[in-house]
């Protein structure tokens, strides 16, 4: 990856609907170069997916989200990978990470109600082999997601002119 790739990735991460022509002007290259580079970045898996950052609460969807911590006994030869693979197949699991520290896997789970999440954890996750302990934390409010703050700050008034 070079500096031009980095610029393209940042622009797409910020707004993946930016037209090719605009990307070309911003990154100081031809449209064809932009197309080629994005193609390569997609093929290499550097770009996983194009999506929107959604504030579901504001969109009117009452989905509940929770962070779930799991203590897991790793498997010989596979470590945490096989159990993580099993867990990641549940559509309720929005993200899944292996962590250092007091627990091993961290899940972000969403569901229509607290009750549903509780049932998912107790019936689907907790009984799995090698899961030693679970802790469920309901998310109360999101202030910032993927670099985007949700709270609206009042704009500071600037002078219209200065030298």
């Amino acid at each position: 990856m070079d500096e031009k790739d980095r610029i393209l990735l940042q622009l797409l991460e910020e707004n993946c609907r930016t037209p090719l022509s605009e990307l070309a002007v911003l990154a100081e290259m031809s449209e064809q170069d932009v197309k080629d580079r994005i193609g390569r970045l997609e093929a290499a898996g550097a770009i996983r997916r194009y999506g929107a950052v959604v504030d579901w609460e504001r969109a009117g969807d009452g989905n509940v989200a929770a962070v779930i911590e799991l203590k897991v006994s790793p498997e010989r030869d596979f470590g945490y990978d096989r159990i993580a693979e099993r867990i990641s197949r549940f559509p309720q699991v929005r993200s899944l990470r292996l962590m250092t520290g007091a627990y091993d896997l961290q899940l972000l789970v969403t569901g229509p109600s607290m009750h549903e999440i509780a049932r998912f954890v107790s019936e689907q996750i907790a009984p799995m082999d090698r899961i030693r302990e679970t802790a469920t934390h309901i998310i109360m409010k999101t202030y910032k997601e993927n670099g985007t703050t949700f709270a609206e700050r009042e704009e500071v008034e600037r002078l219209p002119y200065s030298f």
């Binding site: 600037r158 002078l159 219209p160 002119y161």
Partner: peptide, 18 residues
């Protein structure tokens, strides 16, 4: 210009050097 701009609500200012 400053005085005219003050009377407007939706000015896009490219006049500020900051």
């Amino acid at each position: 210009f400053f005085d005219i701009a003050q009377t407007m609500e939706d000015v896009i200012s490219l006049g500020v050097g900051e």
